[in-house]
Design a protein around this nucleic acid. Sequence first.
DNA 1: TAGATTGTTAATCGATTAACAATC
DNA 2: TAGATTGTTAATCGATTAACAATC
Lengths: 212, 212
Amino acid sequence: MDRLDAPPDVVIRRLPLYVRSLRYLLEEGIHSVSSQELGERINVTAAQIRKDLSYFGEFGKQGIGYDVEKLLNQIERILGLTNRWPMVVVGLGYLGQAIARYEGFHTQGLQIVGLFDRDPDKVGRMVGNLPILDYTLLQTVISTHQARLAIIAVPAAHAQVVADVLIEAGIRAILNYAPVILQTPDDVWVRYIDPVAVMHSLTYYLAHEHQA
Amino acid sequence: MDRLDAPPDVVIRRLPLYVRSLRYLLEEGIHSVSSQELGERINVTAAQIRKDLSYFGEFGKQGIGYDVEKLLNQIERILGLTNRWPMVVVGLGYLGQAIARYEGFHTQGLQIVGLFDRDPDKVGRMVGNLPILDYTLLQTVISTHQARLAIIAVPAAHAQVVADVLIEAGIRAILNYAPVILQTPDDVWVRYIDPVAVMHSLTYYLAHEHQA
DNA sequence: TAGATTGTTAATCGATTAACAATC
DNA sequence: TAGATTGTTAATCGATTAACAATC
């Protein structure tokens, strides 16, 4: 394979699923796995797993498969999960609070270092072990922790300004829960979580199920 | 084009974004839009929009573009959004409560008709205007409302059993927030919301940014 | 050794983009 | 009419799958 080619984004998006599945395997005390077996757990073909991994190197043994722990470590290294990643959360409504309280980020190398809301009634309150801060402190907190990751959980109408401020303050990758497409510079990564859109794509299939 | 071909899933997933953008346009008082203009708002090419729509019919006028309201109505009809969709939410932790309290579902044709948790301490409490019910009532509520949509927001270890029960009770499409890949029959639709995986794909790019 | 499974190449499949005749 | 923009076809691009030699 051509190690010069950058791996496609689809592949990068699948790597975290491999990581998770390998962690589960390890918890189950399974130390060796074939692309076939791994694939069955993630609903992905064996060929796709091997092809995906081939962008980064050779991690298995013919006739044997993959050493779970070794492969896990390798993919974690590829994803940069050997360091902890500081991130900030903006918008502490019900959703933002659920995000702030979710242990899954912390256990997976993602460390929330700042919570921000512009509502004066919320500022100062604690969520978990962090206080909600005013937007005026965004810049300081982001530079202090060198945070490059942010989660936006503010109302739709407010998301674009928040994104602008975050980027200005040094944020380079955003996970946006607000139902708006953000306009950002090319060197900023933006991903969306959009449950209503997902549900609407499902209603399509339910509405058309009996025509098929 | 060949109206006999089923539209690809990628296209179905984009339709809800068109719906949303068209709604925003309408709110802004804009009544006519070209594929070019619409595309700029959603970060999609004009050609892709026209191609996507062509799977379902002809909705625009040459030289003019699309009537916003008309196109909106058409896509809503295609997605089945002319009816309201009953759905249940299982798991009323912080996340489940945020979901239950989010107005976005209700305003977009998705009506939560039941909240379920197995924790006896939670059962009976109200979240918004609905009480949290025990799993024993799942079957009844689902059949009463003929719900075919469900959201799973339980801990990872519990998600597969919950899915099994839901499907047994008649659910046909699931949005799963738990970090596990569900094993389900072919006639059940499953989508995932997985913020940790998304963040991990972002750390990849941040970790490799300066090699590029 | 025989059996299993990798890594990789080539073939296939599918989605996006470009281009343009049709037409408002 | 001239200019703009659609709907659609064909070309391009990219991702998935199949197949198999290499090898544990």
